[in-house]
Design a binder for these strands. Sequence first.
RNA 1: GCCCCGAUGGUGUAGUGGCCUAUCAUGCAGCCCUGUCGAGGCUGCGACCCGGGUUCAAAUCCCGGUCGGGGCGCCA
Length: 469
Amino acid sequence: MRDSAEWQPTSYRSHTIGQVVSLGDSLIGTEVTISGYAETVRGRGAICFLMLRDGTGRIQAFLKRDNMDQAFFDLVQSVSRESTVQLTGVVAEKRAPKVKEGESPPPPEYEINVSSGSILAIASTPLPVGVTDDVQVGLDVRLDNRHLDLRREHVNAMFQLRSRVLQYGREHLIAEGFQEINTPKIIAAAAEGGTNLFPMKYFDTDAYLSQSPQLYKQLAVLGGLERVFEIGPAFRAEKHDTYRHLNEFISFDIEGAWMDDEDVMGVQERMIFHIWSEVKKNDQNLIDIINKYRISQGNEEIEVDIPSLPFPRIPYCEAIEIVKKGGGEIEWGDDIESHHCDLIAAKFPGFHFIPRWPMAMKPFYIHHKENEKGTTGEQLSRGFDLNFGRDEMTSGGAREHRVDILEENLRGMGLDPADFTFYTDGFRYGAPPHAGWGLGVARLLMVLTGAGNVREVVLFPRDRSRVTP
RNA sequence: GCCCCGAUGGUGUAGUGGCCUAUCAUGCAGCCCUGUCGAGGCUGCGACCCGGGUUCAAAUCCCGGUCGGGGCGCCA
């Protein structure tokens, strides 16, 4: 539940439930008004218990027929679960529950002795997804009813964690001198080849949804913004159907001038270190909620393991050797696929960088040094990946800042430099060497939360077959 | 695009040709009891994805479709 200590009263409540729960003792005897979802309603006689939940906590409301308008009492008593209710009453210490012999009584808890209130909105029955039920629900049903799924405690906790991860990431980058930018998501050209783009109509012109802020964040750096980052959507029209791919996802991108691939790997590992450290320090309560659920499902608990710095660097050539020794079929020049990553992850289970990929496998904007060759004599690049276990988190690299080589690379990949003048022109008037990366936010969150499917940690995921809700 | 698997009340499931007027849990509706607290007790409600076929008999076998899951490919 969220910390609401500083929240101001609103038209619908004098206190958050979280405030009542945490202030507890000092509020005894005070009249408060709270609002929330009716989680359970027990009792059909002269008394009634209603567990009320808002985004900050849950508290029991105690209702006695004699203490209020009888019509309201009857209404509350028959209200369906998840209906929203506003209640006014006096804070009191809850009577301690009966405990088994030998068990120590729980710490004091608080409740509201209700005197009045109103029903804000009735929930239809039955709920398509149980909020507090023990029964499992399939992911598809959950996503169809995400608005209800989000009310489940552990799901809610995951999205609070997501917000924290972005907050800590921003914090760290700003501390390192990066500034936040936004680049256009409607673009004119199929910028980079490779991935398929979603076409769209921009008035009378053909346009596309952006697959990556890559070229624009570079232009921002070339323009002198020096160090930039963007947290924004990227769209890819690939017909993949896996636990880790979506057609719309949030990419966490940085780009920095006067930096090379090693420099931005440093930024990345420090940022991840900061995020993990802060989560461990501030958000164990959210991890606990997720673990409570995981235990109930028979899953292993997750732990926030702060990675040690620096992360291992396993250059491409070495990675190929590891895969070969592990019995994987691979040749220099092949992509390192998921099943290959399993072999590497066996030796490097946590975060690890894979730098120095073959230039032939990298996009045209990746920098290379002519004297850096692979074991077979082929040109290496300054592009890198960050993996965790078998999954790719990041792709990044030092960028090509020499315009003649950029154009050569474009031609080499079957692209026409004339289509990229909006980009290459940025390099004609003095270009700082620069580097950057793009990180999949949801993939990072999968690592942190133990989610087995990227859809778990995306509010309203867009995949091959889902555009609603 | 390829391969494999699956679809049973609102939800999650049991069921492998007749024991199925279909199991269990949860839910929902109602009643009883109760300062309850994973509340408890009782009663009831509610389902075999769609279309065709095989068979005396189909939730169960076959074919097609739809939807979903897993794996692969694709993926700056």
